[in-house]
Amino acid sequence: MRIKTIELSKTYEKKSRALENLSIDVNMNGIFSIIGRNGAGKTTFVRILSTELLPTSGSGYINDKDVIDQAEEVRQEIAVVPQEARPLPWLTPLQTVSSYLMWRGYSYREAKEKGKEALRELGLEDKEGEKSRKLSGGQKRKLMVATVISSEAPIVFLDEPTTGLDYLSRKELWQLLSRMKKDRLIILTTHYLEEAEILGDQIMILDHGKLVDMGNIEDLRAKVKLPYVLKVFSEDFKLEDNELQVHPVSERETFVYGSASKIYGLVPYLVTKKMKFTVEEASLSNIFEQYLGNGEEVEENEKEDS
């Protein structure tokens, strides 16, 4: 499965630039995660490639078909759960899934059979006859994802499908997506960096409509200056080193970011002092902060924007 953009740009009416000359070429099966701050351009990117929105300039392709001029062909190959999409409250889960499949062209009987299969897969078969308004928030999101995943579309766009869900509900959705990704490309935008790290076979970082970087977690980690984290659990630990970033988390906990050689260089000292510690590779959150700055910088940027 392939998605490609060339110099893709989008400027909205009020001159706000949502995407700026974005060029990517992704050829894979699996989950392609898109991360970025609010307003980074994630949803605009998804809406253009899913043929809902026209770009201001540039071009986009889904399996080599132009999303502007060949939208009808593209729509045969994609399915989308937009941000904030909800099941219609007056429909049952089975009616929700089967109606969507009928809009994709399945017959009533095929759609009902496939709908039942999808609900079984999700563990929602006992809810198939209840009205969707009675489902929990997690079940509603799972139902929306199941609705598109039950279709034949090889490329699926999910725009922040887990926003607002508790951790356990998110984990259930992650399991579902992991099972469903084998023969398709799932394009997932998310605010949860942990989610992007766990699920993303490839991760794209956007900022102010521009591509910051793209690759799997190892690729991204290899490009940052501080790819390792030393977590020290001791009140007595103090350190000053210009090549390391030291973050006291609490009185008893300090995180130190640095290169492998610098971090492992501290280990003998910690062993001698009998301090508890762990050494980990930088998480996507750490990498994200290194690419885009920490929260204070984000606040400053937002002030400048406003």
């Binding site: 399915a79 759960v81 909800r86 809009w103």
Partner: peptide
């Protein structure tokens, strides 16, 4: 209602339904 509150129209626009 289907378009703005439920986002159904976005799902239909990007489906094979014209």
């Amino acid at each position: 209602h289907l378009k703005n509150d439920m986002r159904l129209q976005d799902m239909i626009v990007s489906s094979p339904t014209t």
